[in-house]
Amino acid sequence: MTSLHDIPLNTLLLSATDKLGYTQATDVQQAAIPQALEGKDLLVSAQTGSGKTAAFLLPVLHRLLAIQSPYKVSRALILLPTRELAMQTQEHLQQLASFTHIKAGLIIGGESFKDQIAVLGKKPEVIIATPGRLVEHIQSDYDLSSIEILVLDEADRMLQMGFADDMKLIAERCNSKRQNLLFSATLDHEKLVRISEGFNEPVTIEVHSQKQDHANIVQQMVLADDRKHKEKLTFALIEEEQPAKAFVFCSNRVECEQVSSFLRYKKLKVSYIHGELNQSLRKKVMTELRQDRIQVLVATDLAARGLDIAGVDLVINFSVARSGDDYAHRIGRTGRADSNGKAVSLISALEWNKMSSIERYLKVRLERRVVKELKAEYTGPKKLKNSGKAAGKKKKKK
């Protein structure tokens, strides 16, 4: 494994990585940082938890230190899908830039627009933003022509959230001679081609595809009858596993709040997070989770992407993920940095085929698990197709 000191980074940045205890470059850092330092445009496929945030922050900071601007302008823009990921990235940047003069401005929804105008007016070297709010500033005549480096992190997630037009507009408003660094869990998304049209002969790097096995994560399934049964199973699993931290993933806001209420009734230290929660409450929840004042976080898929929470031992899929990619990102909350983790999916009769499709897509087989005294009446399909899906009754020909 390559040491970060073997990569020609500014000594002020290496002092910061030493202070943070980052000594060895991860695979994505080893592959991406040297190419980015050469000024090349990149298309990088890498999972959350692979060290990809530092893989773009370090070359961005290095460039800002190596090439001084004669004017006080914002020079780098980092675009991310969610407020939580943006705040997390700002915190990471502040740590890596702690020995430098470089400042970052945060432009996200849910915060005062007027205060953000003041932040942008100070011309921070780096702008960290979510697409929707930044477009609002552009529509109020904010100028991005000084941006020399554009980073698109979790690009596939931004596209899934419907930000394709916003991303395209933002890219068009940046300096046409900029460097582009795009990071995504997958490079297969059809709209990525449109987003990367303005890139200059980009280098493609693929590290830890989301389809690769999570070798250090035990993946299990527990059959369930209904929502009430799933609630009891969730509590029983947490009691059995005794995780330091656990994530419970639900399909929507209502389910998220219901499960959280049940676990709170059971005296667990629990909270929830979803897209309709206001910004101050979302900040409070994430702070409490990082400070170990919460053991269980119940969440919609908002929290599945990007959030870097250390020490998550257990992931429970209360409802089956919508896709194989979403499933991979959910369980990727655990088993990080070579630690071991466990992911348990609660499967009802109506969800069997969806889970079967995920298994086939990711080329995995979930091991069956039974929770004592809570065995489901549902025992799985009576007959299976070759695909693993339930075989239905053949319809009689008329």
Rank of each mutant, 00 (worst) to 15 (best):
Y361E: 13
I149P: 12
R83D: 08
S145C: 09
G162D: 12
K103P: 10
A343G: 08
D313C: 03
L263D: 02
V320Q: 09
A86Y: 05
I33C: 06
S319W: 10
K396F: 14
Q30R: 01
S112C: 05
K393W: 15
E239W: 11
R305W: 04
K211S: 08
C250L: 04
G21P: 13
E190G: 04
L43E: 12
F318S: 08
L43M: 09
K284R: 11
D301C: 03
G105R: 07
A54F: 10
V60W: 11
Q29T: 01
M286K: 03
S50E: 07
S45D: 07
H62F: 04
N180M: 14
V315C: 13
Q30K: 11
Q94S: 14
S196F: 10
A391K: 06
S196N: 15
S357F: 13
G132V: 05
T26D: 07
V320T: 12
H5A: 04
L152T: 05
A376Q: 02
F163A: 02
Q88N: 11
P124A: 06
T2G: 01
L20C: 13
T204C: 04
D213G: 08
Y142T: 08
Q220D: 15
R194N: 15
K266D: 12
L134C: 11
Q139I: 00
E154Q: 07
T53V: 10
F99M: 03
I273H: 11
L277P: 13
G311R: 05
I138S: 02
S69E: 15
P81V: 05
G39N: 01
T334C: 04
D165N: 05
E240G: 02
L181D: 15
H101R: 06
L93V: 03
K385Y: 15
D166L: 00
G380L: 08
D338G: 09
A390M: 05
Q279L: 05
L42A: 11
I33A: 00
A246N: 10
V135D: 15
A224N: 05
C250Q: 01
K40S: 09
R194Y: 07
E231R: 02
S209G: 15
L187T: 12
K266M: 11
F247S: 02
D27S: 06
E231L: 01
A337I: 10
A185P: 14
V370A: 03
L58W: 13
Q116V: 10
G39F: 09
R63V: 02
V193K: 15
K375M: 11
R336H: 13
Q139P: 08
R330C: 07
N278F: 09
